[in-house]
C-alpha cells in the first residue's frame, strides 16, 4: 500500500492481505540498497495470521518516493513516523542488516512504541570496507556484485532457493540494481559506516528482543551479532548453521519458524 510520511510517498507491502487497523502491526526494515521484496517469505505468513505486516521500502528505495535518508538516526525517526502514519500507536520491529541498526536505534528512541525487536544478521556497528563504499558511492555495479558474493553463504552460492525456480544471487543483484546504485546502496553504506551509537542504543532496549545469526555471515559475523545481543537485556539468540547473511531468504523457513514463535508469544495476533 501507499501512504505519506513527511510529505513523501511511501510504499509498503502488506503481505498480500489488506491493511486492517484492528490488527497488531509488524514493520519489516530491509538492508542496504535492498527493498521490501527481501521479506516476502516472512511477511505473507504474518499477514495471513492476524497481523498487519508492513515491509516498507525506505525513502528513495524500491517503490517509495523521496530521497534516501542519510543517517541511521533519520531512518529510525522515519520508522517511528511510519507507525504514526498508518494510525497505530505501537509496533513490533524486524530488521535485517542495516535494518538492524535502524530498528535498534528506533527502539531505544521510542521505547513505549516498540513492543518487540527481531534482528537478523545484525551488529552494533557495520563499518564498511572503504573500497566497497567507494564503489557504491561511484555508482559502480561491482559494488552490488561484491555485496551479493559476501552476503550469501557457501550454500547460498550454489542456489537451492526455498521458492522453486528462483536463483538467489541474481535475484538479489536485480533488487539492488533496481534503482541508481549510488543513491541507494551508496547512501546506505555511508550511513552504516557513520553510525556509532549502536552499542549505546542497545543498552537502553527493554522490550523482548530476538537475534537470528548465521555461521557463514561475512557481513555481520556471529561474533558481532552476539556482542550486540549481550548488551540487550534478556535477548534471545538463534544461530543458523551453513547459512550466510541473507538468512531471511537462504533459510527462510527456519527464520520464519523462529520469528513466528518469538513474535506470537510476545506480541499476540488478533485472533480471528
Amino acid at each position: 500500500m501507499k501512504f505519506k510520511v513527511n510529505n513523501s510517498e511511501v510504499y509498503a507491502s502488506t503481505g498480500g492481505r489488506p491493511f486492517d487497523k484492528k490488527k497488531p502491526l509488524i514493520i519489516f526494515v530491509h538492508g542496504s540498497g535492498l527493498t521490501h521484496m527481501t521479506w516476502v517469505l516472512q511477511t505473507r505468513y504474518f499477514a495471513f495470521h492476524g497481523y498487519n505486516s508492513l515491509a516498507v521500502d525506505l525513502p528513495g528505495h524500491g517503490l517509495s518516493g523521496g530521497e534516501s535518508l542519510k543517517s541511521i538516526e533519520e531512518m529510525a525517526d522515519w520508522v517511528s513516523a511510519v507507525i504514526d502514519a498508518v494510525g497505530h500507536k505501537e509496533a513490533s520491529l524486524v530488521g535485517h542488516s542495516q535494518g538492524c541498526l535502524v530498528t535498534v536505534e528506533c527502539t531505544s528512541r521510542y521505547p513505549d512504541k516498540i513492543k518487540t525487536l527481531s534482528l537478523m544478521g545484525g551488529a552494533g556497528a557495520i563499518p564498511m570496507n572503504p573500497q566497497l563504499l567507494s564503489l557504491a558511492e561511484n555508482n559502480d555495479p561491482k559494488a552490488v556484485d561484491l555485496m551479493m558474493d559476501w552476503a550469501h553463504g557457501p550454500a547460498g552460492h550454489f542456489g537451492g532457493h526455498p521458492v522453486p525456480g528462483l536463483y538467489h544471487i541474481n535475484t538479489g543483484t536485480m533488487l539492488a540494481k533496481s534503482r541508481t546504485i549510488q543513491n541507494t546502496l551508496g547512501v546506505d553504506f555511508r550511513a552504516c559506516d557513520n553510525y556509532k551509537n549502536g552499542f549505546e542504543a542497545a543498552k537502553k532496549i527493554k522490550c523482548p528482543t530476538l537475534s537470528i545469526l548465521a555461521t557463514d555471515d561475512k557481513m555481520c559475523p556471529v561474533k558481532e551479532g552476539k556482542k550486540l545481543a549481550s548488551l540487550i537485556d534478556g535477548s534471545q539468540v538463534d544461530i543458523i548453521d551453513n547459512c550466510g547473511h541473507m538468512m531471511l531468504l537462504e533459510e527462510a523457513d527456519r527464520v520464519l519458524t523462529v520469528l513466528k514463535k518469538f513474535i506470537t508469544s510476545n506480541y499476540p495476533p488478533l485472533s480471528s
Binding site: 498480500g16 517469505l41 505473507r44 505468513y45 499477514a47 495471513f48 542456489g159 537451492g160 532457493h161 526455498p162 521458492v163 522453486p164 525456480g165 528462483l166 536463483y167 527462510a252 523457513d253 520464519l256
Partner: peptide, 21 residues
C-alpha cells in the same frame, strides 16, 4: 505463497527446480 516449497509436481518438483535454478 507464504512459504516456498512444493505441493504438487504439476506446479513444481525438487529435481525440476534444480534444473530451473
Amino acid at each position: 505463497l507464504e512459504r516456498g516449497g512444493h505441493i504438487y509436481s504439476r506446479i513444481s518438483n525438487p529435481t525440476v527446480g534444480v534444473l530451473e535454478e
